[in-house]
């Protein structure tokens, strides 16, 4: 049974991020898509075109909300207006789960609008888990947290990123949005084995997976969501679903956005892996690389 309590026991298949350049195509052509992921903050408004488009999408498709500014790892208290608007939107979309990032981004009331890495300390575990619990109680849907790409590590950290993730989700009793591209990007930037990360994640908590492209620079990799997914990330994806089972999967493409068809085609490459996993006997474990990478 791949679906779990963190994604509302739903089988969602492969989704695409709902982006403005594709609005017209989607509303006119009504393409077959399992579900759309919407950036919550873009629709936490009082009226106008964003909500009108969202309502039309909701008539035709299932929608899952993904947030970018809850900042579970920020020490400062949660923003009440943000929470209230989020809850209003949750009721509108009926999202089966709600995701946001395992990061911080605001302090003393000032927002960086970035996904900043958290020092992996016990204090940070406490702060982050408490906030996730608070949000989960308030919005009344399962919250799932996404691992972020990072470019810096802290002297203060006393555990690995995956140990930190595991501690937080256990204490908050929340789900995980496993971004395999982010694992790959961070593994290149911080010199760890991405397979170890994927193999350390508690499978029973993974509600969703993100895949995306990135940009490689001379000394680091940047998570830009402006390219197709590269083979090593597909390999990580294959490894992840082999452990976890078929899981709701979403392709992120946020910059230099190509046509809807191209984004859809890229997302549907995941189907190849999902079908292979569906055929596998449950006894097969992650130790054996049995899935072929789609070319």
């Amino acid at each position: 049974m791949p679906a779990n309590r963190f994604n509302g026991f739903t089988e969602y298949g492969i989704g695409i991020g709902l982006r403005i350049p594709h609005y017209r195509h989607i509303l006119e052509k009504k393409p077959v898509v399992d579900w759309f992921e919407v950036i919550s903050e873009n629709y936490m408004v009082d009226g106008g075109n964003p909500l009108a488009v969202l309502d039309q999408i909701l008539e035709q498709y299932r929608v899952v909300q993904h947030g970018v500014s809850m900042y579970f790892g920020s020490v400062q208290p949660l923003n009440r207006e943000h929470l209230q608007r989020l809850k209003t939107l949750v009721r509108r979309t009926k999202t089966p789960w709600l995701s946001d990032h395992l990061c911080w981004g605001s302090v003393d009331g000032r927002y960086t609008h970035d996904l900043l890495p958290i020092p992996y300390t016990w204090e940070a575990v406490d702060v982050t888990a408490e906030k996730i619990r608070h949000v989960q109680d308030f919005v009344e849907v399962p919250v799932v947290v996404e691992n972020v790409s990072s470019y810096a590590e802290f002297h203060d950290s006393v555990m690995t990123e995956w140990e930190f993730l595991n501690e937080v989700v256990e204490r908050a009793d929340c789900g995980i949005l496993l971004d395999v591209n982010n694992i790959y990007v961070s593994s290149m930037n911080h010199d760890f084995d991405p397979a170890v990360y994927v193999n350390s994640v508690p499978t029973e908590r993974v509600a969703q997976i993100h895949i995306a492209g990135h940009s490689r620079y001379e000394k680091y990799i940047l998570d830009t969501h402006d390219h197709p997914v590269i083979d090593p990330v597909w390999e990580l994806y294959a490894q992840a679903i082999r452990r976890i089972g078929p899981t709701a999967t979403l392709l992120e493409w946020d910059d230099k956005i190509p046509s809807f068809e191209e984004v859809h085609r890229e997302a549907m490459k995941a189907e190849h892996f999902l079908q292979q996993v569906a055929k596998m006997p449950p006894a097969l474990t992650a130790e054996e690389p049995v899935l072929e990478v789609a070319r």
């Binding site: 960086t112 609008h113 970035d114 470019y151 810096a152 590590e153 002297h155 911080h190 680091y220």
Partner: peptide, 29 residues
């Protein structure tokens, strides 16, 4: 004082990635 270097980037350069990202984002907006 708070960011580790790695074999390719000094602490300063790692922090600089975030500094640049911040300004590119808010100025574009």
């Amino acid at each position: 004082a708070y960011i580790k270097p790695n074999p390719r980037l000094e602490s300063f350069e790692r922090l600089e990635i975030y500094n640049r990202q911040y300004w590119f984002r808010v100025l574009d907006s």
